[in-house]
């Protein structure tokens, strides 16, 4: 009897070799393993055998069945088809519940910047949006009579309370409350009384500040050029040029070349000794640099947005384009 089993197996092997379609394989499967198939038949025959025989042959028959199943399954995967003959899934139908919200491009940009600067030891600090003149202007070496106050058209809410015109006020508070070494970044909303297609009365900034012993202009250059490369994911054509801010000396502006044109992206410089002395840091012992940039402008460059107003209109057709970004 056992001989018969092994011939069954070799017969199956031969059939499988010549089998080339899912349909044939299904036929072979039902011929051997089906309810009325060859192997079931052998089991039925066993019923009449002696106990002794049944024990031996049963084991062999089971082994045969296992082997047959294995052979068929492996042929099936060879044919890359499922041998179960269930209804075929129409995989071209749409998936269910395709929906995803999105983060706002301004915050996406802020988060991206924070992620980069964190690697250089900068910690995020948040602060007040309603500030006083000391933290927003005076401490930053911008006295009341200074023409630079014209650069900041300021919203006032009382005689000396105002909406911060930059996040530098947060840097002042940080320098007053903790001592060097200091590496912080201050993202947030800022306000200037300006409204046209390229200016919004509310916009976002992030500023960075690094104070330590022996910090110099070459450190500033290195950090910012690496930062720009990481932000845009490739080497960019950049230049540093002298500029003017009351709170830094020397001051610089970083430009990036886009489509053959230099665009101003970021202001920076070595922290002015007057600012350091205003926050009780000894400028003979410590030096540092600061930089600041407008988020909307950067987001516009990154995503090719041409109209500043899109950021605050919050049209879902606009926002949904930033799906899946982090």
């Amino acid at each position: 009897m056992s001989k018969e089993y092994s011939s069954l197996l070799s017969e199956l092997r031969e059939k499988l070799v010549s089998c080339s379609s899912q349909h044939d394989l299904a036929n072979i499967k039902s011929h051997y393993l089906g309810r009325k198939g060859v192997i079931s038949n052998e089991f039925i025959k066993l019923r009449t055998a002696s106990t002794e025989e049944r024990k031996i042959l049963g084991g062999k028959l089971n082994a045969l069945k296992d082997e047959a199943q294995k052979l068929i399954a492996s042929k099936a995967s060879e044919l890359s088809v499922s041998v179960d003959c269930n209804e075929k899934t129409d995989i071209s139908l749409p998936g269910s519940n395709i929906y995803l919200g999105s983060r706002h491009p301004v915050n996406l940009t802020i988060n991206k910047i924070i992620d980069i600067l964190r690697n250089y030891g900068f910690e995020t600090v948040d602060g007040f949006e309603i500030e006083d003149e000391f933290h927003n202007f005076d401490a930053l070496n911008i006295p009341a009579s200074h023409p630079a106050r014209d650069m900041h058209d300021t919203f006032y809410i009382s005689d000396d309370k105002l909406l911060r015109t930059h996040t530098s006020s947060v840097q002042i508070r940080s320098m007053l409350s903790s001592s060097p070494p200091l590496r912080i970044m201050t993202p947030g909303k800022v306000y200037r009384s300006d409204s046209d297609p390229t200016h919004s009365p509310m916009f976002h900034q992030i500023e960075g500040l690094c104070i330590d012993k022996n910090i110099n202009f070459c450190h500033l250059k290195s950090l910012l050029s690496t930062f720009i490369t990481e932000l845009f994911g490739r080497d960019m054509d950049i230049r540093f040029r002298p500029s003017y801010f009351p709170f830094t000396e020397p001051s610089a502006e970083l430009d990036i070349k886009f489509n053959g044109k230099w665009l101003e992206v970021l202001g920076c410089g070595m922290v002015h000794p007057n600012v350091l002395s205003n926050v009780k840091i000894d400028s003979k012992k410590y030096s540092g640099f600061a930089f600041g940039l407008g988020i909307e402008r950067l987001a516009m460059l990154q995503y090719g947005i041409t109209d500043l107003r899109m950021f605050y209109e919050n049209d879902l057709s606009f926002l949904s384009q930033f799906k899946g970004l982090k």
Binding site: T124, D126, P181, F217, C218, K221, S222, L223, P242
Partner: peptide, 23 residues
């Protein structure tokens, strides 16, 4: 510095520092 040319200055990496950056 401005006559020397800002672009002519070297770039020196910031020394690493042990500060918490976790807000």
């Amino acid at each position: 510095a401005r006559v020397y040319g800002y672009n002519n200055f070297s770039e020196i990496p910031l020394p690493p520092i042990n500060l918490s950056t976790n807000n």
